[in-house]
């Protein structure tokens, strides 16, 4: 009894805080490893405001409309001819800018309208691919326009808003989506 008490008295009653750092480090490393900074990316789209009646594109001059139809078998019909998704971007670019002043392509970029129509049975993947190509066509044209204006980096979202507006004013993105058909199986 007596012996024991004496050893207890000798002990210092301070807790060693040296290992605290290690414990904290362990926790820190755990959080570092588990943290996944999820970067959400996607195609930004501005939907038109809701209205009961659909815009009538038949009234427009036919040469200014670039119609893209996607059926339930994920096949493309561009200006009433079958086409492949891989050609879509080049065709859309040629249509909008019309470099050789052809009679059947858009009069000028500001008048060009892309009309996209799909079926309720179209795969979402195909739809996104088509939308991506059309958006890509505009992005490429904006890029060229920016370079023509003397911006070396080309078009990007870091440009001042006035510049972006000026570029988009010259080549506005008009993409009209019609109510889909319901031929295919959902």
């Amino acid at each position: 009894m007596f012996n024991k008490r004496s050893t207890r008295d000798k002990m210092s009653n301070e807790v060693n805080a040296g290992s605290m750092a290690d414990i904290a480090f362990l926790l820190l490393i755990f959080f570092l490893v588990t943290t996944t900074i999820v970067e959400d990316k996607g195609i930004r789209v501005k939907l038109p405001p809701w209205s009961e009646d659909e815009p009538d594109i038949t009234k427009l001059n036919k040469r200014n409309v670039f119609s893209v139809l996607v059926n339930a078998q994920n096949q493309l019909l561009v200006r009433n001819e079958p086409a492949a998704i891989s050609d879509l971007r080049e065709r859309a670019k040629e249509f909008i800018s019309n470099p050789s002043r052809r009679e059947d392509l858009a009069e000028k970029p500001t008048k060009a309208i892309i009309s996209l129509k799909n079926d309720r049975g179209t795969n979402y993947k195909t739809y996104v691919e088509v939308y991506n190509e059309l958006k890509g066509a505009y992005n490429d044209l904006w890029d060229e326009e920016a370079k023509r204006m003397g911006i070396d980096g080309g078009y990007n979202d870091d440009l001042p808003i006035e510049t972006r507006r000026a570029i988009k004013g010259k080549i506005p993105m008009v993409l009209s989506e019609a109510e889909p058909t319901a031929f295919g199986k959902e």
Binding site: D40, R44, P48, N132
Partner: peptide
């Protein structure tokens, strides 16, 4: 949206978003 989904349900959601005045949409990819 999953890539294999058909456009029908996506279209319904889009229409509802338009009716609700939520017009800025991002197709996650």
């Amino acid at each position: 949206v999953d890539g294999e989904v058909t456009m029908g349900i996506v279209q319904d959601v889009k229409t509802q978003l338009r009716k609700s005045g939520q017009l800025i949409v991002n197709y996650s990819a």
